[in-house]
Nucleic acid binder design. Sequence first.
DNA 1: TAATTGTTGACTCC
DNA 2: GGAGTCAACAATTA
Length: 543
Amino acid sequence: MCPSSSSAKGSKGAMHWFRKGLRIHDNPALVACLEQSPQRVYPVFVLDGNSYQLLRCTALRANFLVETLQDLDENLRALGSRLYVLKGDPTKALPKFWKEFNITHMSFEEDESGEPYAAERDEKIIEKAQKANVRLFSQCTETMYPLKDYVTKAGAKGVPATMTGFQKLFKSMKPMSKVLPAPEKEDFPDMDEDDLLAAQYLPPKRPTDLPWPRGIPKSEVEPLWGPKDCKNLTPIVHGGETLARKALTESLKRSNWVATFEKPKTSCTSLAPSTTALSPYLSWGCLSPREVWFALDEAVSRASSNVKPSKPPVSLHGQMLWRDFNNLMAHDANKEVPGCWNKMEGNKYCRQIPWDDDPRLLEAWKTGKTGFPWIDAAMRQLTQEGWIHHLGRHAVACFLTRGDLWQSWEEGAKHFEAELLDADYALNGFNWLWLSCSGFFFQYFRCYSPIVFQKKNDPNGQYIRKFVPELKDLPSKYIYEPWEAPASVLQKAGVKLGKTYPRPLVDHAVISKENMNRMKQAYDAHKARAQTQGGAAKKKQRK
DNA sequence: TAATTGTTGACTCC
DNA sequence: GGAGTCAACAATTA
């Protein structure tokens, strides 16, 4: 069956290219597409194995995308439309689709953070669209305000590199534009039945339907969805706009909780998330950040008059501000050196620190076999559920980098990108810079202990018992430090150190002090470099 | 130039 | 559980 039926030829066809922003509510680019009054509209997603979302991607993440695309297709079908899913390189697949369906207009949500693959891809697409006479429409809706608006508002002095500065900038912005409702059935033109049925463009049903990255041997991108599936994994949330909206409503029902939320006070050892866990929906764009912001306003207004509301940066509104701030920082760094944001070299916000490169230590960290039960539990939750509480991420990130193992944050960031359901280019990079004391946060003498940090929250180690079951029968006294337990206690709990559970990789008390000295040296070198460069710049100015 | 502030440390003492 | 100390960062404010 040829999808481009004779009736399609000559009539005006428009498409909306979904990349992130996988939703129909508050999607101005989709609305702009419908407003072109085309005779036919094609909502399109391209499964691109080399995209940021899929290049390093575990079964859990792949499954989340499949669920999200299925949901998007269902929601579009309820409006008399459907989702058209293409496979492969968008710079080839899209021009082919334009030709086949006589597309004259294409809309999409811009990717402003400067993620290098997306930036290159879009540059090529814009060029090809010009040649093919396809008119492009784009909107900047990944953040609450377009990043370029923050840049304009900040003016000649440049964008602020501190959260306090960003909050001031945010306050000075004009009111946020109104949230758009989802389009209605009447907004979509009637479609040719052949087009609606075209089976070659159906969304994927399972992770194994997703394409492998082009030009990369399978062995180099393990673990991916190929060798293992999701059967025994338990994602913290499932994909799709429908579930996202339900989760948002559910979270915000507790208006007093919303109004008094303070991020640092939430627990990272509770077995059910102590935060909203909406982050995967924000990172894939199942939820609009502006809609979340206004929904928070509404929830806070419902709170009892006697509660004292929390404020940014610790409040839930504050979490939305961090998100925009992180995107702005990524955007700004990449503007200077394209693609530098998740790298140490060339990134103007990143201190140069001589990290070690020990694959054995990295692997132990990734697989949750460091011998520190609390660290291992968090790393295994990541693999099992695709999520760790924010403070848990802090603890494991500090442990991998400046705290204990002295491995590069770049490696940690790559692992998080593969495994986190909410993996986000800008946020992931920012948080790794922060935790490794490479940028934005510099108090390296404040170090998380892999032992005592969670003892106060979870003295009995229920979180460890869940995710590190080989230790579940240890008495609470030793659950955070099994190496301290007498042989008889270990034997009774069925633990053989070095066999059923590893001995600790390092002596935290000793190594964390040594690492602080290494940080001091790296900072001193940074200062010396800055002075030399500053001196040289002044000299040049005088000339 | 000095003091203050910064989403989320650990430890000791009381 | 709250306050002060540890050994001391960068950016901003006074």
